[in-house]
Amino acid sequence: MFDLLQYSFVQNALAAAVLASIACGIIGVYVVVKKIVFISGGIAHASFGGIGLGYYLGINPMFGVLPFSILSALVMGTVSKKSKIPEDSAIGILWSLGMALGIIFVSLTPGYAPDLMTYLFGNILTVPRFDIYLMLALDLIIVGVVYLFYKEFLSLCFDEEFTTVQGVPTQKLYLLLLCIIALTIVVLIKVVGIILVIALLTIPATLSRKFTHDLKRMMLISTLFGTVISVAGIGLSYALDAPSGATIILVLSLVYGVVAFGMEMLEGRGTLN
């Protein structure tokens, strides 16, 4: 098994797993406690427009998706709060609009779009070294923003109205939160792909909630869960020759199911007759 570590694609895969787990471990906690899973899913899917744009312009799709995901976050955050239509309807419309744009761009691109499936479903075993550096840079930005705005984000997630009354520009802060969710999605794309990103944003954070009532500790625990489980998932997908992204999510769901069921059994004892 240790022989495998000599291969650079395995080293890259492990680095990608750790970097992805840090991003989703920290930001997933906000997504879960602020209950913005749906809008996060919307940003992720709409970002497909950026991948299509990257193909169409003939640049690395990662450079298409980076600005496009930020734009999706800003548009979605603004439209869903300001427009008269219900928030979830607004998200649904923008979600599909972004994907449709991506498909149109891909179809306009002459020839064949290589690696398209990688962006949709991820493939951690083919992450190039360049993408590792990009993920590292984005992780640094994410950790830096969370460090600087920790108390503001905590108050925003707990009680947005009270935070506004305290004189904090909550609408801008919310947009900032959505933007770092967008960056997290970019970090996660190569690991599990746009379609499956939401699993990494929700499962480790939800799992960590069962072990602590402290936001910082939740971030730490969900990062650890994410790392251990995604490394296990990589091993399993290698051994079974199964798609890596989907395998990681299956393992995550399985662990979540076992832990949730086990804890319910334990809690049920003594509280119920």
Partner: peptide
Amino acid sequence: RFDFDFPISVWEVVLTGRM
């Protein structure tokens, strides 16, 4: 209005009143 499962302590809640 509140979600009482929210991972926040009494101390952290009261501190947000200082922002």
